[in-house]
Design a protein around this nucleic acid. Structure first.
Lengths: 136, 136
DNA sequence: CTAGAAGTTCGCCTATGGGCGAACTCAAGT
DNA sequence: ACTTGAGTTCGCCCATAGGCGAACTTCTAG
């Protein structure tokens, strides 16, 4: 049986409201609208101007949240997600997006490790670094 | 010979202006004032209300800059630096401050590595995590 | 005396990631 | 008819890390 939500949309249909997407993704509706402004998610509008999202929107948000944890901004996540068409049945695209995140994360780790190694030497306290001072 | 700067202070004396500190630390004078508001540095005032800093101020700024690179905020750097008295001749205090940074950096790396490992599994796309769902 | 350099405070602007309340619409249920 | 719930836009709020300009003072040099 097909029931309808309070906006008259069939709930069995693959279109979700902000609130539904928000709950499923574990964020607030506020945040979802924010993500939309940054292009992380995008959707349609109902006749009453309410946002309608396809189910993959939830995955997009989850990816962006995961990406944040490796220091990726919403804008950057939006760029990565731009390569994945809405309602893609192609799991490979999500896998490769995940791989991009892993690569970026590993790069961050390498960078951080280099910084920590430098910190350990206390070199940062030195008056100036040799490369700033051209030795004739 | 003791020369004087444009504010009438002897440059051979151990008190520096914002500009001098800024140049030595490789930041703008603006930034130095900002750091002062956050307690990263502190100094005196001349009769004309101009800031006067001791030379160790430069090291404090450099430490804060290094700390930023491992994700430490100015406020946190201020806390670490609060343990080092002005004009400390005790190198050990700087060494231990450096060690704190290294420990924090290593913790960040471990955290990041864990996150990347999780990303690699694509688990973040799953509807809910087991720990959110109490299995009776 | 006057110009210039460097200092001062104040306050607005930026980006990033949202929270929150106001005021409003829209559709369903009683 | 009215309430209720969920949606909408708008705009101000926070922290973090400063940039930048305005308007003003202070001191030195010529």
């Amino acid at each position: 049986m097909t029931s309808t939500d309070h906006r008259g949309f069939e709930t069995s249909q693959a279109l979700l409201t902000v609130g539904q997407v928000a709950r499923a993704a574990g964020v607030t509706a506020n945040a979802v609208r924010f993500y939309e402004r940054y292009g992380v998610v995008s959707g349609y509008r109902s006749s009453g101007n309410a946002r309608r999202f396809t189910v993959d929107t939830i995955c997009r948000i989850k990816l962006a949240l995961a990406a944040q944890r490796v220091g990726i901004t919403l804008k950057e996540s939006a760029d990565i997600l731009a390569g994945i068409p809405p309602l893609s049945r192609d799991l490979d695209q999500w896998v490769s997006a995940g791989e991009q995140l892993v690569l970026i994360g590993q790069a961050r780790i390498a960078q951080l490790q280099a910084t920590v190694n430098e910190l350990a030497t206390l070199d940062f306290l030195q008056p100036d670094t040799p490369e700033d001072r051209p030795r004739h």
